[in-house]
Amino acid sequence: MAPLDFLSEFRAREGVNNHSKGKWYILAAAGLAAANKGELMPELYRLATVDLPVEDRKVVQRRIKEALLKGAVLYGIPRSGQALGPLFQALPPDEIDLYAPRTQAMNTEGESERRVKRGRKYFETLWTPGPAQGMIDRIMMYHPDHYLLDVKTIYEFWISDDSILSNIETQMCNTTLLTCWNAPVQAMWHTRGVVRYSGTLDKARFAQDMGLAIARQFDIQTGDITMVDDIVF
């Protein structure tokens, strides 16, 4: 059996034929990178783009690259590179998608203010306003540079940008990859975040189940995962 055959179950379970709306392949990309299986990214891309015209393939590619880029803030640049590198090498020159929303918006008027507001809103939605401010105050008390990197930069520039992946999709990717990353507490936080961003319990289960399936497939430890039905939302 090919290593990614198990993904057919998730593709069928999602039942979404629109390549620009499907979530199974972006969750798989995030989870495979976290599981240190980035060498399988070309095969995932092939499965997700079979029979699609070039412009549609670029949309899928864009979404996979965004999932891997956002995942880098959680599993690190090396894992991201080990997934993006094989994908880049597999792309024909006429199929390379160059959409770069952050780079393109960086010097536009008012972008800095919009980015700050967007990042703050995302952080407060994920943690709720009171606990979010308490967390910021605690970090600023003990380690201001930690705030600059792990809250301000990550949330303003990367996590909160919804030009490619919606906030729900981002939280689903985080759920899958953290489940595969042996970070059960953080996985619970971001699984809860799916619902706090108005995602359904079914979407939270889908993301969690994808992470657990990847972990089983590649014998990855997950720690003591809190299942969706046991999370206090």
Rank of each mutant, 00 (worst) to 15 (best):
Y122K: 07
I96Y: 06
L126M: 12
M141Y: 08
P144E: 11
L87E: 01
E109W: 08
D137F: 10
G81N: 13
M106A: 15
P144C: 11
P86S: 11
Y99H: 10
A72D: 06
T103Y: 14
Y75F: 05
P131W: 04
R120A: 08
R138L: 14
R102S: 09
D145Y: 07
P78G: 05
I96H: 03
G76F: 03
R102K: 12
R118A: 07
I64R: 01
G110N: 03
G76M: 04
G71M: 01
V73A: 15
E109N: 12
I136Y: 08
Y75P: 02
R63S: 02
E109Y: 11
E109H: 11
I139L: 01
R138W: 13
K117P: 07
P93D: 09
T103G: 12
R115H: 09
S112Q: 13
G134F: 06
L84M: 15
L98A: 10
K70D: 02
Y75D: 00
K70N: 06
V116H: 09
G130T: 14
A90E: 01
I77N: 08
M135P: 00
V116M: 08
F123R: 07
G85F: 13
G85R: 15
L126R: 04
Q61V: 01
P144W: 01
E113D: 14
R62N: 13
F88W: 13
D97P: 04
P131E: 11
D94F: 03
T108W: 03
F88C: 10
A90H: 04
Q61P: 08
L87C: 01
L91H: 00
A83N: 02
S112T: 12
A105F: 05
G76C: 03
I136C: 00
G81C: 10
E109P: 03
W127E: 00
T103A: 15
M135C: 11
G76E: 02
T108Y: 03
P92M: 07
M135A: 14
R115M: 15
P101Y: 10
I96W: 02
I136D: 01
V73Q: 02
W127Q: 08
R118T: 12
G85S: 13
Q104W: 04
S112P: 00
D94M: 07
S80V: 04
A100Q: 15
P131C: 00
D97A: 11
A67C: 11
E66Y: 00
I64P: 00
Y99W: 09
T125K: 11
A90C: 07
P144V: 04
A72H: 04
R79T: 05
L87G: 00
L91S: 02
R118G: 10
P86H: 02
Y99V: 07
F123G: 03
A67H: 00
T108A: 08
Y122N: 10
V116Q: 09
Q104R: 06
R115S: 07
Y99E: 12
L68C: 01
R138V: 01
I77G: 04
A83K: 02
P78L: 05
R118L: 06
A67Y: 01
G76P: 04
A67M: 02
P144Y: 02
R115Q: 13
P93Q: 13
I64V: 07
R79K: 15
P101W: 05
E124A: 09
L69H: 13
G85Y: 14
R63P: 01
M106T: 13
A105D: 13
A72F: 06
I139H: 02
R118N: 12
F123K: 05
K70R: 08
L69V: 13
E95I: 07
E95C: 07
D145E: 14
E124N: 08
Q61G: 06
